[in-house]
Computed example of a mutant assay.
Amino acid sequence: MLPHLSSDASHWAFGQDIEVLPRIFEDGITLAVMQRRLDPTLTLAVRAQLSGTRPLDWHWRGAPGQAMQQDLLRRLPAPEAGAALAEDVGHIAEAMAYLFSTDTIGIRLRTLEGAMCPRFHVDNLAVRLVTTYAGPASEWLPEHAVNRAGLGAPHPDKPDIVADPAAIQRLGVGDLALLKGCGWIGNEEHGLVHRSPQPAEGERRLLLALDPG
């Protein structure tokens, strides 16, 4: 979903090609998104994993590659139909490792029936890549819509984080989004404010998150 134009637009980078992702290294860019639609084979693989009741919460920390994909396949609820999903996760992990010049990637693929982080917040790490394979995708706030004094642990004296509810943005299913956090040197006060949306009753999300290093 394309964000509404505002004075904050210089802090975002959206495109349909992978070349948009390195823009996260630019000063001032806090969100870089490669917009994509899942192809039919991948969509079928995702649906197969969500067709039953078995939850998925898979973790990997190490080098991307064949061993990683094989480990994921073993853990999928429907491994016989999961090849396209494992391959896609592998390609994303390899791209992440290349972009950040690291041999180690932390990966988590999980199903969610509720909001994992329902409150708007900022990550304390440098950067994270997220993509939603099914269900509502992550939401984020342009800077003009954020009251940063409200961030952190809830307290009655804190103001609302959202200064303009109409400005809440949502990524699209399949989008590859790099979110710059407050752990990025030079970005300590400007980490992207985001949250996990609440799925509808009976709906499940399939969320992938990757951290370099």
Rank of each mutant, 00 (worst) to 15 (best):
E19F: 05
H190L: 01
L129R: 12
V89G: 00
Y133V: 12
L76V: 01
A93Q: 09
R54S: 09
L141A: 05
R74F: 09
S51A: 12
P199G: 06
A9I: 05
M116Q: 09
Q169H: 04
W12Y: 15
H11R: 14
V173R: 09
D160L: 14
A126P: 11
G90V: 06
K180W: 02
S10N: 11
T111W: 01
Y98P: 06
L2Q: 07
R119I: 10
T53F: 15
P142T: 13
A177H: 02
L141K: 10
V33H: 06
I161S: 06
K158E: 12
D57V: 04
P3R: 00
P212L: 03
F120Q: 04
G135R: 08
V146L: 14
G202L: 03
T43A: 10
A200I: 05
L2A: 08
L129E: 13
V20K: 06
I107Q: 02
A149V: 07
A93M: 12
E113I: 05
H11F: 14
L178I: 11
A134M: 14
A209Q: 11
M1F: 03
G181L: 12
E143K: 07
V193H: 11
H59N: 03
R119H: 15
A81E: 08
L50A: 07
R75C: 12
V173M: 13
M96S: 04
I18R: 11
I18W: 10
A86Y: 00
G152L: 08
R108T: 12
L141R: 06
E87P: 02
L44Y: 08
A45W: 08
V193N: 07
L112F: 15
L76M: 03
C117N: 15
T41E: 09
R195C: 04
I161H: 07
R108N: 14
